[in-house]
Simulated assay, not measured.
Amino acid sequence: MNPDVLRFSPGAYLAPAVDWLNANFHPFFAALTKLIETVLGGIEAALLYPPAYAVIIAAVLLAGFLIGFRAATVTAIALAFCFLSGLWTASMQTLALVTVAVMISVLVAFPLGILASRYEKFEAASRPVLDIMQTVPPWVYLIPAVMLFSLGRVPAIIATIVYGIPPMLRLTTLAFNQVPKDLLELGQASGASPRSILLKIEIPSATPTLLVGLNQCILLSLAMVVLAGLVGAGGLGAEVTRGLTRMEMGLGLRAGLAIVAIAILLDRLSKGALQGRRIGRSATAA
């Protein structure tokens, strides 16, 4: 028997599907590309139009006012490193890309995680899908994204969103499943509406685990940044790729450390902002 007869080729089935999507939904993909480019361009302009020192000072003051001294210190060190390493423009491009990707990932994963915590059948059905999404090598996501959106920043963002959704969704489900039942019963007994229970009991109780999910989403999104440089997304990923192809260890190391600095910055700021908001709510309730 010819072994080629038994060979399974997923591409033989996926390629026609992608072609069909391109042929029938091209206006949708074009509109989505324009929307993402507009949002991304606006964030990049806000970060790159002012002088670098002005952005650093404003970010440090804002972090110190909203969160605290430690967050301001981390912000100053991270942004100063990006500036002094000569990668300010690439760093701001990466920061804008990751910010947009993480925001969309959270907006998609958070309600789906709540839904999965409410309905066991939905959680059971989503589990194998999430397993596959987390097991597939991340660069594989770039292939259909590039086929649908061409080269550039948009396929990089789409692939980053897909890669960042599973950890946030899983940990959102876990966070809401870990909310103490007695708190939920107390809220129901007091006549609180489902919306009030969600906002005043479940989300505050689930915040520590949600922070872990947000942290994982940020880190995985930044891990995709390097791969995004392969499809013309620019930013620090392009610098790492350039350092690899030219065998310039210094450039690759500087770009890699800048990615680490941005990861620490986003992690500390997001965690500090959410924890500060939770503390503020607790003080108000008391």
Rank of each mutant, 00 (worst) to 15 (best):
Gln188Ile: 05
Ser193Ile: 12
Ala233Arg: 09
Ser196Pro: 03
Cys217Leu: 13
Val225Gln: 15
Leu227Val: 09
Gly232Phe: 13
Lys200Cys: 13
Ser221Arg: 12
Gly235Phe: 08
Thr207Glu: 07
Ala223Pro: 09
Val231Leu: 09
Leu220Ala: 11
Gln188Met: 06
Pro204Leu: 01
Thr209Val: 10
Gly234Cys: 09
Lys200Val: 14
Leu210Ser: 15
Thr207Ser: 11
Val226Tyr: 11
Pro204Arg: 01
Leu210Met: 15
Leu214Lys: 00
Ile197Phe: 00
Glu202Pro: 08
Asn215Cys: 11
Gly229Ser: 10
Ala233Cys: 08
Leu220Ile: 15
Val225Asp: 14
Leu222Ala: 05
Ala192Gln: 04
Ser193Trp: 06
Leu222Arg: 01
Ala223Glu: 11
Val212Ser: 05
Gly235Tyr: 04
Gly187Leu: 04
Leu214His: 03
Leu219Pro: 06
Val231Cys: 06
Leu220Val: 11
Ile197Cys: 03
Val231His: 04
Thr207Phe: 01
Val231Arg: 04
Leu227Glu: 05
Leu220Gly: 10
Val212Tyr: 02
Leu230Lys: 13
Gly229Trp: 15
Leu211Ser: 05
Leu199Gly: 09
Val225Glu: 14
Pro208Glu: 10
Gly235Met: 04
Ile197Tyr: 02
Ala192Cys: 01
Thr209His: 02
Ile201Arg: 02
Pro194Trp: 10
Arg195Glu: 10
Met224Asp: 07
Gly235Val: 01
Ala228Ile: 05
Ala189Asp: 03
Asn215Tyr: 14
Leu219Met: 12
Ser196His: 03
Asn215Ile: 13
Ala233Ile: 07
Gly213Phe: 04
Pro204Lys: 01
Leu222Asp: 04
Cys217Gln: 10
Ser196Asn: 05
Gly229Val: 08
Leu236Gly: 07
Cys217Thr: 14
Gly235Lys: 06
Cys217Pro: 10
Pro194Asn: 06
Leu199Asp: 08
Gly191Asn: 02
Ala228Arg: 13
Ala206Tyr: 00
Pro204Ile: 03
Leu220Met: 14
Glu202Phe: 02
Ser193Leu: 09
Gly232Trp: 12
Gln188Arg: 12
Ile201Gln: 06
Leu219Glu: 11
Gly232Tyr: 12
Leu236Arg: 08
Gly187Glu: 00
Ser190Met: 14
Arg195Phe: 11
Gln188Gly: 03
Gln216Cys: 11
Gly187His: 00
Ser205Cys: 11
Ser190His: 00
Ala228Met: 15
Leu236Asp: 12
Pro208Ile: 13
Gly232Arg: 07
Lys200Gln: 15
Leu214Gly: 06
Gly229Asn: 13
Leu227Gly: 03
Ala233Leu: 11
Pro208Thr: 15
Gly229Asp: 15
Glu202Ile: 02
Arg195Asp: 08
Ala192Asn: 02
